[in-house]
Amino acid sequence: MLIFIIVRRLIFSIPTIIGIGTLAFMLGHLTPGDPAIAALGIDIEGYSNVDQAEVERVRKELGLDKPILVQYVSWLGNALVGEFGRSYVSSVPVAELVFEALPSTLLLMLVTMALAVIVGISLGIISAIYRGRWGDYLARLITIVGVSTPTFWFAIILMLLFAFVFPILPITGDITQHGLKAMILPSFTIALHPAALIARIMRSSMLEVLSQEMTRTATAKGLSPQRIYLVHAFRNAVNPVITVVGFQFANLLGGAVAVEFIFSLPGLGSLLIEGIYEKDILVIQGAVLVISVAFALSNLAVDILYMLIDPRIRL
């Protein structure tokens, strides 16, 4: 039963998530610098003038004086029930900060992924169908440019272009200011690379399926090319693309961190980078944990998608 398998996979992903939590915790504590000093609002230059007694007081207050293992257990216990502590800097609960930033990032990811999948798959199919003709060459040129363009550079070029040449799209700001328009440039920036990758994989996978005997059978039945390409070949060719989409989620999240910052889009990425600047350990840990769990869940979704598409994997 499909439901049974999904539940089992969900249970299996619990250890993964606990592992991710441990890594997120260690990451916060392994970064150099003293969070207690950061919490006092003192930067590195002022370090020598710090009142040691004051630092000790803050350290005790934040529980940073306890052994690392004790801190870990209490943090993990709280994190599992969605309690990440309070930001050292603003004293706002981290959970609140994270869940405020989450929808914007999720929306950005969703729009980006949809864009990358639609553009990538279409380009890949066109390329495969018109193999060796100008449609294929054009599609391949686009994908090569897409794969080799650095994201940060593309972001800056887009900003320049839409700030000075075609001032029709907002180059900074969030949805509350501009609506979905605010997502267009950031999602284009992040989608470029995965779209090109998906196109390349789709092309080669499609070409392989088209050379198989089952395609000949479908043709011999008298089916239309549309049905052969989009129903028969596509379903057989799409599995490698799903794998890539799953892996791309990690890259996309990474890309979102930088791109949100460049386009001043409030989201998990911006929150994380601010947390790193402020040495706000709990914010970093909370953001990293939520991003990682999202990644683990997207992998699960990919596995389930496999089972839905390919009847041979339902075991």
Binding site: A220, K221, G222, H232, R235, D310
Partner: peptide, 29 residues
């Protein structure tokens, strides 16, 4: 094709579409 002249191939396993039910594959023609 498939209507006046149809064809049976050598490798039955790889000549059928693995992602489609038998019923769908026969009925689409």
């Amino acid at each position: 094709r498939g209507n006046d002249i149809s064809m049976i191939f050598q490798e039955p396993m790889s000549s059928l579409n693995p992602m489609m039910t038998i019923g769908n594959q026969i009925s689409e023609a």
